[in-house]
Write a protein that binds this DNA or RNA. Structure first.
Length: 226
DNA sequence: CAATGATCATCC
DNA sequence: GGATGATCATTG
């Protein structure tokens, strides 16, 4: 298992080494078995790349590279370089976060610096054949930060006011709130419409495709359409 | 249960 | 085709 990288340059160097490899090739190097499909191994890609890059953290609520305050995100893209999915950020606090300010929020902290690792992963490609792209480190610019902050503040206000049930995935501009649970029967504490505690489906913050697509376009100078 | 890693599958 | 809501595995 690769050692934890000491700095950002080491991480980027490692990214250069694995760019262009298929996930099957990388898995073979690391002696990790490859699932035939991801239906029951949805986290496999992310965990493989964590291993390859020496990320730590596991299932704890901390950065992938704690000392570097760096978050690792794999990003499945199609052959045009467009993200296939929205990107999960973190679970949403449904209680006890009233009064929390944006700079202290887990969304802001996690997104303050991200190592994006595009993976060419058309749906008809077997996991082993998916190809690792060129990873890059991103930090939100002022405009991106403002969009994230605005969406976050709106969503958190609705949560605090007990309007969680009204929030749909379409609510934010770049950030959305959607279910995040093992199934529709999972429950967690939340604030009801009358302000009293209720149980509800856990939610998570996700970045919309248009936002991650813009990040890729920014990094690679691609056209943002198509 | 809640956190991590996300993709699946259905509906529009 | 794309987005929304549902779901899967694993760990502490």
């Amino acid at each position: 298992m690769p050692a934890a990288p000491a700095n950002l340059d080491q991480i980027l160097a490692r990214c250069q080494q694995i760019a262009g490899l298929t996930l099957g090739q990388l898995a073979a190097e690391l002696q990790v078995p490859v699932p035939a499909d991801l239906r029951r191994d949805k986290g496999w890609v992310g965990q493989l790349l964590e291993l390859a890059l020496g990320a730590s953290g596991g299932s704890q609520a901390i950065h992938d590279f704690p000392h570097l305050e760096l978050e690792l995100k794999t990003l499945p893209i199609d052959r045009h370089g467009k993200p296939l999915e929205s990107t999960y950020v973190c679970v949403a606090p449904l209680t006890g976060a009233t009064g929390q300010q944006w700079p202290e929020s887990w969304v802001c902290r996690k997104l303050s610096r991200v190592l994006w690792l595009p993976i060419l992963a058309e749906r008809d490609m077997a996991p082993a054949d998916r190809i690792i792209g060129q990873g890059f480190i991103w930090q939100p610019d002022a405009a991106q930060q403002a969009l994230l902050r605005q969406d976050w503040e709106e969503l958190m206000e609705l949560i605090a006011l007990g309007r969680l049930a009204q929030i749909k995935g379409a609510h934010g501009k770049v950030l959305q709130l959607r279910p995040k649970a093992a199934d529709s029967k999972a429950l967690t504490a939340a604030i009801g419409a009358d302000g009293r505690p209720v149980l509800s489906l856990p939610r998570g913050f996700y970045l919309k495709v248009a936002f991650t697509r813009a990040i890729l376009a920014q990094a690679f100078g691609l056209e943002s359409e198509r």
